[in-house]
């Protein structure tokens, strides 16, 4: 069973090596505006008064992500500096998925993205988004299949709108159903 959590819940989680040493805590998430997933974490030192660590943790270097800690193989999993967290020259402006409109390919705006839903475990991935609809409802929508991201909107297949979940408990079912429906109706061309 896959366990999901909101990306914002990762903030403040300790970053722990497999040797059992805490090397920092998550300060913030940096989204990748070209893929809609998470690119890296910025870190702070541990403790109440600790300042920023100025060393980024790339998403690919996360060994495991759970409800109690972000696990990394060793101290060397961190970057030497935090340049990865800053928008690079090749990047479009923005660099964030939060606040962007989630829109279907058919042209229906489902709502604004307020958070990402992350599948935890050994290979954590962004599995969906939390959106705030036009009626100010907060719903969770799984993503699967072709997703296109710009700094104005995240484009998802039309089917996505039919598989919204009210909370994380029912999100897995919604994600399963969406994947099932996309498999049954493969895209033409």
């Amino acid at each position: 069973m896959t366990v999901y959590m909101r990306a914002s819940e990762i903030i403040k989680k300790p970053v722990v090596t497999l040797a059992g040493e805490a090397i920092g805590q998550v300060k913030d998430l940096v989204f990748d505006s070209s893929t809609g997933s998470i690119r890296c974490f910025t870190l702070a030192g541990r403790g109440l008064l600790a300042g920023p660590l100025h060393r980024a943790l790339l998403w690919d270097n996360v060994h495991g992500l759970g409800p109690d800690a972000v696990m990394v193989r060793a101290d060397s999993a961190l970057e030497e500096d935090d340049t990865a967290a800053r928008p690079g020259d090749g990047d479009r402006t923005g660099g964030d998925v939060l606040g962007v409109a989630l829109t279907t390919c058919g042209g229906r705006r489902l709502g604004d993205i307020t958070d990402a839903v992350v599948a935890m475990g050994r290979a954590p991935v962004v599995a969906g988004y939390e959106i705030s609809t036009a009626e100010q409802r907060r719903v969770l929508l799984p993503v699967a299949g072709p997703v296109t991201v710009s700094d104005e909107r995240v484009l998802v297949p039309d089917e996505t709108a039919r598989y919204e979940a009210a909370d994380l408990g029912t999100f897995e079912e919604a994600a399963e159903n969406l994947r099932g429906s996309l498999r049954r109706a493969p895209k033409e061309g």
Partner: peptide, 11 residues
């Protein structure tokens, strides 16, 4: 006295 964490971050 220490917490036990799995390598996937579960206490």
């Amino acid at each position: 006295g220490k917490p036990v964490l799995t390598e996937t971050g579960l206490c």
